[in-house]
Design a protein around this nucleic acid. Structure first.
Length: 552
RNA sequence: GCGCCCGUAGCUCAAUGGAUAGAGCAACCGGCUUCUACCCGGUUGGUUGGGGGUUCGAGUCCCUCCGGGCGCGCCA
């Protein structure tokens, strides 16, 4: 029996109580069953009586007694007790609890998935780095978290598109080209250019592929370097992100917005909605109509489109492509964009609460041996995604970056990440998976067909088995809340607890027959529990883009 | 100056208004003559930055102060 089924049961009980006149008709709050921190409080607990007390005008404990009395009659429920100010604590019969193992194994790779967001078409845009340098650690948090958000949304049934917006237009591109040209000609890179060592490598690669490039006139040469560098850099970004298992469905070029007429279409859409005005020779969008602190310029007095014009066109284009919800993942240094992006949606005639969502993530502070490393592309002191993967591996990097809520500031020490490899929780979780895999391999070698054998879930009544089953039962709700809150770190934290529950079980409960011991129903039941644990860990790791090894 | 985010154990961080604020690391003590010890058990460690408020209940919500980060262009 799952906690959600318990909740449904209580919803029915409340409806019954209302129809019997035991409690006044009220809008009942959503029923939730949680796993209490202390097992003395049972397998599950609900605060529904406390939440219902005020609207019903009754004492919480009186309500709790009514609910508990009905719950005790529910099949699978061993006991229901009222505790504290009005909590209802439930104990399940071990058979009802043990059924969770069958549920998880039967569901397989879709265990934990739901249809909570089915029908929702979501565009998740993240990283969106300039194509003027490698993906660095500042972007890497989003490479891990953005992809994990996409994965949990998919698990909740949403139709998700991962999108990378390429800022390939504007003065930064020209500075990039100028830097490459200077480097190729043995001249110092301009003060406001890009100074990383990668510029020299890129310049050399460009010259090698096209030796005559440096004999072009300066203006043509700059464009040639810019375009060649852009192509190489973009390819490199795609390749590195692919290595990191973050694969984008769409790489969207800012230039293409201008070339395809999308900018004009976006402007037309905004004009149609009546939020565009002209002042002092410039064209403005009245974003202050929707909570922005100042209006924004779309077209400068000199006739040039602003970057903001691209942003608005991009949003309108996303809508035209059929996305119900556009999620933007931005760094804290862009939090000033939140109001204007929301206002853009509203100016386009959309609902800024429903159609757009801006998630702000704090920046990652990088230290090396306790000393801060400044991530400056221009100063050339960057730590790239490439470096990180090479040093710690994809699994450790992805996991470490996605086990913290994105809105909490994070300090990572590079030396720690390398040295503390064995202490990284990702290995703890993966080890549990490998350990279970080993047990199941051994079972197969012993010729035990646990899947085909009779499974008696009531045999799983050991305290550690009960605890492990309870953890497994939480998985679908963890996934659902991770999707709903856009917080995939919940999956990681959950997996650590689940791994602990498994290791504790394993420590005390022997799974396979020993020596010439005969195969008993308990062995079978425990193998089901192992298989359910493994399936849950594997599915959870997959949501984070982390591998689930069979051996370690 | 205005705005947003943050402040939890020595360190890095959890905790969807719920019961005694939890993990990992670090420190100390213990556990493998049968399924992976990358594991398990135990001990030490807190005025959740300070103060006030809201309520059955606040780390969580509101006000205020302190401290830190970031943002406030017809730049991109």
């Amino acid at each position: 029996m799952t906690p959600d089924q318990l909740a449904d049961t209580v919803t029915d009980i409340i409806a019954t109580l209302v129809s019997e006149g035991a409690i006044p008709p009220v809008d009942a709050p959503e029923v939730r069953f949680d796993r209490p921190k202390s097992r003395e409080h049972g397998d599950y607990a609900t605060n529904i009586a406390l939440a219902l007390a005020k609207p019903a005008g009754m004492a919480p404990r009186d309500l709790a007694v009514l609910v508990a009395r009905h719950l005790e009659e529910t099949p699978g429920v061993a006991s229901a007790e009222v505790a504290g100010p009005g909590f209802v604590n439930i104990r399940l019969e071990s058979a009802a609890q043990g059924e969770l193992a069958r549920t998880a194994v039967t569901a397989g790779n879709s265990w934990g998935h739901s249809d909570a967001l089915s029908g929702l078409t979501v565009n998740v845009e993240f990283i969106s780095a300039n194509p003027t340098g490698p993906i660095h650690l500042g972007h890497t948090r989003w490479a891990a978290v953005g992809d994990a958000i996409a994965r949990v949304l998919e698990a909740a049934g949403a139709d998700v598109t991962r999108e990378f917006y390429i800022n390939d237009r504007g003065v930064q591109m020209d500075k990039f080209g100028a830097s490459l040209m200077a480097a190729a000609n043995g001249r110092p890179v301009p003060e406001d250019g890009y100074h990383g060592g990668y510029i020299l490598d890129l310049a050399a690669a460009i010259v090698a592929a096209r030796p005559d490039i440096t004999s072009l006139p300066e203006d043509k040469q700059l464009v040639a370097f810019r375009e060649a560098g852009y192509a190489l850099q973009l390819t490199q970004q795609k390749q590195v992100l692919g290595l990191f298992r973050t694969v984008f469905d769409v790489w969207f070029s800012e230039r293409s917005l201008h070339e395809s007429g999308a900018v004009e279409r976006g402007m037309a859409k905004l004009r149609e909605q009546g939020h565009v005005f002209e002042q002092e020779g410039a064209v403005w969008l009245r974003t202050t109509d929707f909570g922005d602190d100042k209006d924004r310029v779309l077209v400068k007095a000199d006739g040039e489109y602003t970057y903001f014009a691209s942003d608005t066109a991009y949003y309108v284009d996303k809508r035209a492509r059929g996305f119900d919800l556009s999620i933007y993942l931005l760094g804290a240094d862009h939090h000033g964009y939140v109001n204007r992006l929301r206002a853009v949606a509203a100016c386009a005639g959309d609902d800024m609460d429903a159609n757009v969502e801006v998630l702000i993530g704090q920046l990652v502070k990088i230290t090396r041996g306790g000393e801060e490393v400044k991530l400056s592309k221009r100063a050339g002191t960057i730590v790239t995604l490439d470096d990180l993967v090479e040093e710690v591996g994809v699994d450790a990097a992805r996991y470490t970056l996605s086990r913290y809520p994105a809105d909490s500031p994070l300090t990572l020490d590079l030396e720690d990440m390398v040295r503390a490899t064995n202490d990284n929780p990702v290995f703890y979780v993966q080890y549990a998976h490998a350990r279970i895999s080993s047990v199941l391999r051994n079972a197969a070698e012993l010729g035990i067909d646990w899947e085909g054998a009779e499974f008696d879930p009531s045999l799983l009544d050991h305290e550690r088995e009960n605890n492990l089953l309870g953890m497994i039962g939480e998985f679908p709700r963890v996934v659902a809340s991770a999707a709903e809150l856009r917080e995939p770190h919940r999956v990681a934290r959950y997996l650590e607890d689940l791994a602990t529950a498994y290791h504790r079980f394993y420590d005390v409960c022997w799974v396979l027959p020993r020596g010439d011991e005969e195969l008993a129903p308990l062995h079978i039941a425990r193998l089901w529990l192992c298989a359910a644990s493994r399936q849950t860990i594997a599915n959870g790791l997959d949501l984070l883009g982390v591998s689930a090894p069979e051996r370690m």
